[in-house]
Design a protein around this nucleic acid. Structure first.
Lengths: 220, 220
DNA sequence: GATCGTCTCCCCCGTGCGGGGGAGACGGGT
DNA sequence: ACCCGTCTCCCCCGCACGGGGGAGACGATC
């Protein structure tokens, strides 16, 4: 079964572009479009999309309020991918706090857009380093912290995973973590993989960066 | 079971001082002393200490060579805590390269010395952040950043190495750093190795931790 | 009773990483 | 001239890492 997507953006051009990119994939199907957040809820009820690609800035009801409303009033709500041109990141953080599952830059390359849709569809609430790094690059380490915090809040790590992340952030290897927790190294690898997946980190280094940037661990 | 410690220092005064400080702890036991690195290996074989507190500058066999010899010729070797007056840090870095697990300032306060011994005994090889914190503690609260910066200065990273460390601390791989700096990956590997050696870090994760802990990079 | 999440451990497998060497080019300093 | 530090690139090599699978045990929830 293909991943079904609902596009919500006030600019027809963007909707068309996203549709073109996504429909080029055999496993992704765009099942509907909306020009404003106000139209989202009934559409979601009718179409039951897996993913809603939602612009943050829209005239009547913006992406933040639409996200909040959607999660409150629809059961088994779709995954919400916040789409932004990135001029105003306040909206993005607001949307993530409201419960969005990831965010996406409009200027991202098609392959990245497709990747993001598949990821959130699979239940990953990530897009951390790629986008946050881009954030940091453009804002000169200005907005990374808040974005990271919002993402980490949504990562929903289990207690064991947080424990493992803490030890990773102290520079321990998998074997050392295993010794410390009195479990097998394979077990630690499982937890580490889960942490990486949930944080959207590519390797333990990025996970540690995420831990620092989010305030999960603090210097000193 | 208490932590057993072997003291290696050519100055009896220092040995006595360390012994006094450490024996005051119920969970730490000094099991032996040596005045030179040459006497270390047979002593370690006989006493099997958990930790060797080793001076770096000693007449016959210095701490660097003693560390190297110890790790090479003893199986299940003890943790090695390098003790230094800190006037000559070249020795310290040499010892860390040789495989020491941490270093300690002679002028550190008793509580810090005890703390350092317990840490390495637990298998913590986070030399850099630990010492930064220790330094920060010595300079009183508030001067932590200055102290941390001082330690990083001691690492004497070149401009290029600092550049590489910054990119490491943003989660980039060697290949990505190479692309960013428009050099070959082998070149980046050289710089990374230099950074790891100078910081006493075992891998890039520990280097990034050191970067955060020292204030070289800051969250947010 | 069945389902779900969590924690635990196992397999294979590719590769990025880091150590340990070396070497040439350039510039500055003595 | 000479040395030295820096930056650049190269080799080989072992291993930790991380992806992609699967699977059993346990407790909570339904």
């Amino acid at each position: 079964m293909p991943v079904t997507v609902l596009l919500v953006d006030d600019e027809p051009l963007v909707r068309t572009g996203l549709r073109a990119v996504l429909e080029a994939q055999p496993d992704i199907e765009v099942v509907g479009e909306a020009a404003d957040g106000a139209a989202v809820i009934p559409l979601v009820r009718r179409l039951r999309p897996d993913v809603v690609a939602m612009d943050v800035r829209m005239p009547l009801l913006d992406g933040i309020d639409a996200t909040r409303a959607l999660l409150r009033s629809v059961d088994a709500p779709p995954k919400i991918l916040v789409v932004t041109t990135f001029e105003n990141d306040e909206y993005v953080y607001g949307a993530l706090r409201a419960g969005a599952d990831g965010f996406l830059l409009k200027r991202a390359r098609p392959a990245e857009i497709v990747h993001a849709v598949r990821l959130v569809a699979e239940g990953e609430s990530l897009l951390f380093p790629a986008s946050v790094r881009r954030l940091a690059a453009e804002y000169g380490n200005g907005g990374g912290n808040r974005a990271a915090r919002a993402v980490l809040e949504r990562a929903r790590l289990t207690e064991r995973e947080r424990e493992v992340l803490r030890l990773m952030a102290r520079g321990l290897t998998n074997a050392e973590i295993a010794a410390r927790l009195v479990v097998g190294t394979e077990t630690v690898k499982s937890h580490v993989s889960a942490v990486l997946a949930k944080l959207g980190a590519r390797d333990r280094t990025q996970a540690v960066i995420a831990a620092y940037e989010s305030g999960f661990v603090a210097p000193g």
